[in-house]
């Protein structure tokens, strides 16, 4: 259970953007290889946001597949790392996306 720390990092990122304004919603993309429990993260973001004075934003967490670049040049997405390249069947590949946590969208209330 380390989602509280990650939620704090996310809310700091949001807070840098919102600069004290009330936050209406936060959309976060979590890669399948980030090692994060989505339900726990959702709960923690709400708690930390309130605690940091960001308001009571709607929280949407989207799970993002891993994007891999194969040595054969084919780029593709998987939800299961045991699946090989659909083009050549190989596993010599580089993870391009799917390890990170990204704050995709923040909505702020301009009236505050």
């Amino acid at each position: 259970m380390h989602e509280l720390g990650i939620a704090s990092d996310i809310c700091r990122t949001v807070s840098d953007f919102s600069e004290g304004r009330r936050v209406e919603s936060i959309t976060v993309d979590v890669g399948i290889l980030a090692g994060v429990a989505v339900e726990a993260l959702d709960f923690c973001i709400r708690e930390v946001a309130r605690d940091m004075g960001l308001g009571e934003p709607e929280v949407t967490i989207r799970t993002v597949s891993a994007t891999l670049l194969c040595a054969c040049g084919h780029e593709y997405s998987v939800n299961d790392m045991l699946d090989g390249c659909p083009s050549c069947g190989g596993y010599q590949r580089e993870v391009r996306r799917g390890m990170d946590i990204i704050v995709r969208e923040v909505e702020i209330d301009k009236g505050h």
Binding site: G5, T13, V14, I101, V106, I108
Partner: peptide
């Protein structure tokens, strides 16, 4: 009124 804006910020932790 809510103002939408795509942030697209990778979360960089203090860690």
């Amino acid at each position: 009124m809510a103002q939408g804006k795509a942030a697209g910020a990778k979360v960089v932790s203090k860690n």
